[in-house]
Design a binder for these strands. Structure first.
Lengths: 134, 134, 134, 134
DNA sequence: GTGGTCTAGACCACG
DNA sequence: GTGGTCTAGACCACG
C-alpha cells in the first residue's frame, strides 16, 4: 500500500492516511478482503507514531472502510453503507456544491464541470477485466 | 451580506466565513465591485471575534475574492483568475476526484453523481432577482 | 456532571465515560444544549489523562450525543439520529436479545422481563413538568 | 453445536463462543445434561486456537452454564441459579436499563421498545422441534 | 505476532 | 481559556 505523508499539508497526518486509503479503495486498487499493513508496519514505513496510524485505522473502521480482526490486522471491508438514502444524498450534495463553488472561482463554466466529471468517471472507474471481481 | 455561523460546525469560524462569501460570489448574490461590510461591522453582526473576521478577509484577499482599498473597505474583486487553464483544470479535478471517492463510499453510482451534479447546477445557478435576499 | 470511574471495571475508562454520559442524557439529567465540563476539567476531576477524556468526548460526538464548539467546550446535542429506521430497529433488537438471553440464565420468565421493562420505563422516564421541554 | 465465529466482530472469539452457547441454552436448543463438544473438537471445528476454546468453556463453567466431569467432557448444567431473587432482578435491571439508554439515543419510544421485546419473546421462545438444527 | 488502552508531555489552532 | 495532534513509551488482551 503506497501512501505518502506530506508534512507541509495542513491536513493532519491521520486524515491524510484516511483519505488516501479511501481513494485506493474507491479506485479499486484495494478491494474488499484485501489486507492492509499492520499498524506497526504502517507506522514504521511512514515514520509516524503507532498511535497516529492506529487513529487512522480506527476512523477507517468507524467509516466502514476497514474491518479489523482479532490480532490479525485489518482488511478492506465489504460494502454495505449504514446510512439512509436521504443521508447519503445529502452528503454527496454538500460535496458537489463545494465543487461548484470552486469551479465558479476558477471560472470554469458548469457545462465544463459536467464534462470533466464524466472524464474523471471514465478514467477512475476503469474497465474490470475477466477474472476481476465486479 | 447574509452569513450564518454554525457554532456546532467543526469547521473554524473564519473558514465558514470564507466558504460562505465564496458561495455568495459563486451564486452571483455578490458581484464584482459590490462592497462587503467592514471587518468591524461583520464581527459585530455575526458576534464573532474581530480577529476572526480579519483572518477571513485576509484569506479571501489572498484568494483573489476580495480587494481591499486602503481606508475604503473591501469590495468583491473582478474575476480575472491568475492561474493558467491547466492549473485551474488541475484544481477542479482534485475536487471532482474527492467527490467521486465519497460517492463510491456512499454507494452512489457515477451516473447518479452526474445526475445530481446537473440538479445542483440547475438549482444553484438560478439568477437572483430583485428582492431576493443575499 | 457526576461520573464515577471504576478502575476494577474491565470496560476501558473512556467507554465508562461514554456510557455514563449517554445514561445521563437518556434519563434527562443532561438535556440538549446543556454544557458538559471541559476535557481538561473532566480529566482533572476523574484523575484520568486528558487524552482519555478527549477520546470519550470524541466518541460521544461521533455518536451524535455531544457537539463540540470552537474552543468553547462541548454541549449536549439536539436529537436527530442519522440512521435509517431499519438500522435503528436492528440495533435495538440486538440489545433486546442479549437481555432475553441473560433473563433465561437468571431464570426470569419472559412475562416478568416485560413487567420489569415497564417498571424501568416508568421509573426512568419520570414525568416532565410544566416548563420542562418535551 | 452450530456456532459461527465472525472474525470481523470486535468481540473476542472466546466471548463470541460464550455468548452463542448461552444463547443456545436460552432458546433451549441445548438442554441441561446435553453433551457439548470437547475443547479439542470445538477448536478443530471452528478453526480457532485450542486455548481460545478452553477459555470460553472455563468462563461458561464459572457462569454455571456448563459442568465439566473429569475426563468425561462437558455437559450443560442443570439450572439452579446460585443467586437470590434480588440479585437476579438487579442484574436484569442493569441489562434493561442499558437497552433503554440505547433506545433513547436511537429515538425509539418506550412503547415501541415494549412492543419489540414482546416480538422477540414470541420469536425466540418458539420450541425447537425434532429435526431442527441446533 | 496483532491491536487497544493509557499516560506524560509538547505544541498548535481557535478565538 | 478551549480542543486537536502527535510523539514516546508502557502495559495488556488476543490467539
Amino acid at each position: 500500500m503506497d501512501l505518502r505523508i506530506d508534512p507541509s499539508n495542513s491536513l493532519p497526518i491521520y486524515a491524510q492516511v484516511v483519505d488516501q486509503v479511501k481513494a485506493l479503495v474507491a479506485c479499486r486498487a484495494l478491494r474488499p478482503g484485501d489486507a492492509v499493513p499492520s499498524i506497526r508496519d504502517l507506522a514504521a514505513t511512514l515514520r509516524i507514531n503507532r498511535n497516529t496510524a492506529a487513529k487512522a485505522y480506527q476512523l477507517l473502521e468507524a467509516d466502514g472502510v476497514l474491518e479489523t480482526r482479532q490480532g490479525q490486522g485489518s482488511v478492506v471491508a465489504e460494502g454495505g453503507t449504514r446510512w439512509s438514502w436521504e443521508e447519503r444524498r445529502r452528503r454527496l450534495v454538500v460535496s458537489l456544491d463545494r465543487t461548484l463553488v470552486e469551479a465558479h472561482h476558477l471560472e470554469i463554466p458548469p457545462e465544463e464541470v459536467v464534462r470533466l466529471l464524466e472524464d474523471r468517471i471514465r478514467i477512475t472507474t476503469r474497465r474490470p477485466r475477466a477474472g476481476d471481481k465486479a
